[in-house]
Structure formats: C-alpha cells, structure tokens
Design a protein around this nucleic acid. Sequence first.
DNA 1: GCGCTATTTAGAAATATTCTAAATAGTCTG
DNA 2: CAGACTATTTAGAATATTTCTAAATAGCGC
Lengths: 143, 143
Amino acid sequence: MRSWENDLGPRARNYTEKLRSAGLRPTRQRLALAQLLFGKGDRHVSAEALHEEAVAADVPISLATVYNSMHQFTAAGLLREVTVDGARVYFDTNTGNHHHFYCEDDGTLLDIDGDAIEVRGLPSPPHGARVDRVDVIVRLKRR
Amino acid sequence: MRSWENDLGPRARNYTEKLRSAGLRPTRQRLALAQLLFGKGDRHVSAEALHEEAVAADVPISLATVYNSMHQFTAAGLLREVTVDGARVYFDTNTGNHHHFYCEDDGTLLDIDGDAIEVRGLPSPPHGARVDRVDVIVRLKRR
DNA sequence: GCGCTATTTAGAAATATTCTAAATAGTCTG
DNA sequence: CAGACTATTTAGAATATTTCTAAATAGCGC
C-alpha cells in the first residue's frame, strides 16, 4: 500500500462526501488536498506551498492540479481567496465571516473574527452594483 | 522642440520642486510621470497602463523606469500601492485616509473617503507588531 | 470489465515584475 | 560652460506566479 493511501486513513470517507456534495468527483488528488487543507484547523496557504506539502506527503500531484483544485474548491465555497500583496494568492480554509491581520515583514496572515469588527458609514455602492464582500486588512509592521 | 518638452509646459517647475522635496532628481522621465499622475485629479493606474500613456504622449521611457519611478514615488509618500487581485498592483495618487470600492467585473477602483468610514472593534495587534494601515476593500459585483 | 467523460499531467505559454550591466543625463565645481 | 562624478535610464534577460494545451489517466455507471 502506498503512503498516500495510508495517509488518507479512515477520514477519507468524510472528504469523499464533502467533495461529492460540492459537486466534485472525489479523486485521489482532491481527497489528498482536502485532507491537507481541512485536516487540522484553519489555514492560509499558497498553491506552491500546498503542492510542496502534498509532494512531501508522498501524494503524486502536479502543480497545475493544485491550482485547478483550489479554484474548484473556491468556486464550490470550500475555500476563499485572500489577496494581500501583488505577489501571490493565498487560499483560506476559513470561509466564514472574518478579516485579516497581514504581517508585511514575514507575509503571515492571521484571522480576525468578523463578529468582533464593525464597519460603519459605508457609502452605498455605485448604481448597478451590489456589495459582494467587505474585506478588512490590517497591515502590520514590526514595532 | 520635442513634444514631451512642450507637454511639460509651465507646470514643469511645480513637479520639479515636488520631486526635489521628495529627494528625487527631477529627471525628464520622472517629471513626465509626475505630470501624468498628478496633473488632473486622483488616479488608480497600473505600471503598464502608465507606460502606455507616456508613450502615447511621446515621452520616451522604458517600462523598467516606470516601475522604478513608481516605487520611488511610493517610498517618498507621493503614491500608494493598492492590491486588490493577485494579478497586478495599482498605484494610487490619493495618499490620504481613504478606502476602496473594487468592481470585480471590470477591475475598476473607486475611492471611499476615509472619514466616512469607521472600523470598530479591531483587536489589538499581536505582540511586537504595530498597525501600519487598515485597508477596507468593498468588493462589488454587477447586480 | 467496458466505455464514456471528467480529471490529471508535463511542459509550454502568458503575465507581471525585477534584475543586470552598459549607456546616458543631472548636478556640482571651478 | 567644460569636466567629472554619480544617479538614472535602458534594453533585454531573468524570475515568479499562474494559466493553457492536448495527450494520458482514472472515476463511475452499466
């Protein structure tokens, strides 16, 4: 038995269902990514980093598939994209109401509970547009 | 007399002073960019777009110089970088307290006066970090 | 298992940005 | 204003991230 099969373990069925209800076939690659992403706590991860994790866990997967899957997960509401610097996109496993601290020095992200924050005085959107989401990014520097 | 010299016109001295007080030599390229950027109202512009404008105005300038200058202007506090989607960086001539509407359909940016908005309940930053800036991005979709 | 289609893949391509080192242009001095 | 000194600009190569392509593979229903 190969390692990636072993690693999926008894939880595999959970993600199988999760993917199926999102309308995504539970392939080995998507199951492995789901496990890495949702297996333990909220995460902020780049495609490149996730690919490295998968490879390190002996899951054979290409970078293109990681990108494909991340976008499919995002479209299905399983992930959210976070853009904080022009350089790369992070995928956030927390899809609930929340915002972010962004540490400009080391590029780390930290969740801020959405219920803790209130944004007042927002002007109404221009004609013909509706508000899709409000993102608050608190940019940090080392003191 | 070449066109870019002509185009700089009587305002050139203003930007000369503006650049000098920012610690930047008033070169022809920087003067032309300053004119394009600050000549009329607040703007959100990408390096590529600004380069095209300059070329269209018969200002001989390379894309590398546009990038260099934008970063120098930003470091000098004359511009601000705005990141809304991973694809590119916008340079914003409004360096005051404000936020943005971002139209996801066509990529346009619109300023929101910073005094109109209040963000309440912000948690204190993690130990050793200070808040550099709070960015509010209101993402819009067509209705 | 068979066949159908979705998915994955390697590698090329596209896009945005940065780097390099050689040429050019401001500025200061006399 | 010529000469020298250094900052700036430049073309083009390099890098980084993400997307595309079309060929191979793998789920899944029968």
